[in-house]
C-alpha cells in the first residue's frame, strides 16, 4: 500500500492530476491510499513552489503542472 497525497487547492490541473494518478495506479495494479491536501497551510509544509504537487510515502516527487503518464508509472515502479 502506497500513501499518495495530491497537494493543490482544487484547480483543474489538480483534479486532472488526481484522476491520472488513480488511473495509472489501477492500470499497474498498485494499491494506493489517496489523500487530497487542499488547505494552503498544509500544502506549504511540503515546501513546493507550484501546485499541483504529488507526495508518495512522505516524499515530494512532483510539483507544478500535470505530470506525464510515464513519470507517474516510474514513481510506482521504482518502489516495488
Amino acid at each position: 500500500m502506497k500513501a499518495v497525497k495530491i497537494l493543490g487547492t482544487g484547480c483543474r490541473n489538480c483534479q486532472t492530476t488526481r484522476a491520472l494518478v488513480e488511473e495509472v495506479a489501477q492500470a499497474l495494479g498498485v494499491a494506493i491510499e489517496l489523500e487530497k491536501v487542499e488547505r494552503m497551510e498544509d500544502i506549504m509544509r511540503y515546501r513546493i513552489m507550484a501546485t499541483p504537487g504529488v507526495v508518495i510515502d512522505g516524499v515530494v516527487v512532483h510539483s507544478g503542472g500535470i505530470p506525464e503518464r510515464s513519470a507517474i508509472e516510474s514513481w510506482f515502479r521504482a518502489a516495488e
Binding site: C11, M40, M44, I48, T51
Partner: peptide, 12 residues
C-alpha cells in the same frame, strides 16, 4: 512558468 493557482506557493 507561472499560473495564478500557483501564486501562493510561489509567493511563500
Amino acid at each position: 512558468p507561472f499560473c495564478s493557482c500557483s501564486a501562493i506557493p510561489l509567493f511563500i
